[in-house]
Amino acid sequence: MADHMLRSDMDRQRLISFLQGLDLSKPRKVAITEVRSKRSEAQNRLLWQWNGIIQTHLRDSFGQVASAEEWHEILVSKLWPSEVHPVELPDGTRYRVGRAKTRAFTIQQMTTYLELLDAYCAEHLGLLLPHPEDLMYAIYGERRAA
Rank of each mutant, 00 (worst) to 15 (best):
W48F: 10
R39G: 05
R36L: 15
G21E: 14
L46E: 02
L47K: 07
S37E: 15
G63S: 09
K26L: 14
I54Q: 02
Q49H: 01
I54R: 05
E69H: 12
L22H: 01
I53T: 12
D11N: 10
E41A: 13
E34M: 06
Q64K: 08
D60H: 09
Q49D: 05
Q64D: 06
S67N: 09
R12G: 07
Q55S: 00
P27R: 02
F62Y: 13
A31Q: 14
T56F: 13
A68I: 03
G63P: 13
L47N: 03
F62K: 04
Q64S: 08
R14Q: 07
L22T: 00
R39M: 09
L15R: 02
Q13R: 10
V30F: 08
R59K: 11
L47S: 06
I16A: 11
Q43D: 11
R28Q: 05
W50I: 02
W48V: 06
I32N: 05
H72V: 01
L19W: 15
L22S: 00
I16K: 13
R12K: 10
L15Y: 02
L46R: 02
Q64H: 10
S67V: 12
Q49T: 03
H57R: 11
N51T: 04
Q20S: 07
Q43I: 04
K38G: 13
T56Q: 13
V35W: 06
A42Y: 02
R59M: 07
R36I: 15
W50S: 03
S67G: 09
L22A: 02
Q49K: 04
Q43E: 13
T56D: 12
A66F: 05
S61T: 14
N51D: 00
T33H: 09
A68P: 05
E69R: 10
R14V: 11
V65C: 08
E70M: 07
E41F: 05
I54Y: 03
E34Y: 07
R39K: 15
H57V: 10
D11E: 12
S25K: 15
P27N: 00
A31T: 00
E41G: 08
L19N: 08
G52C: 02
L58C: 11
D11G: 10
G63D: 00
K38I: 04
L15S: 01
A42W: 00
F18Q: 15
V65S: 14
W48L: 07
E34W: 06
D23N: 15
L46A: 02
L58S: 09
L15Q: 00
E69D: 10
D11M: 11
I53L: 09
K29L: 03
E70K: 14
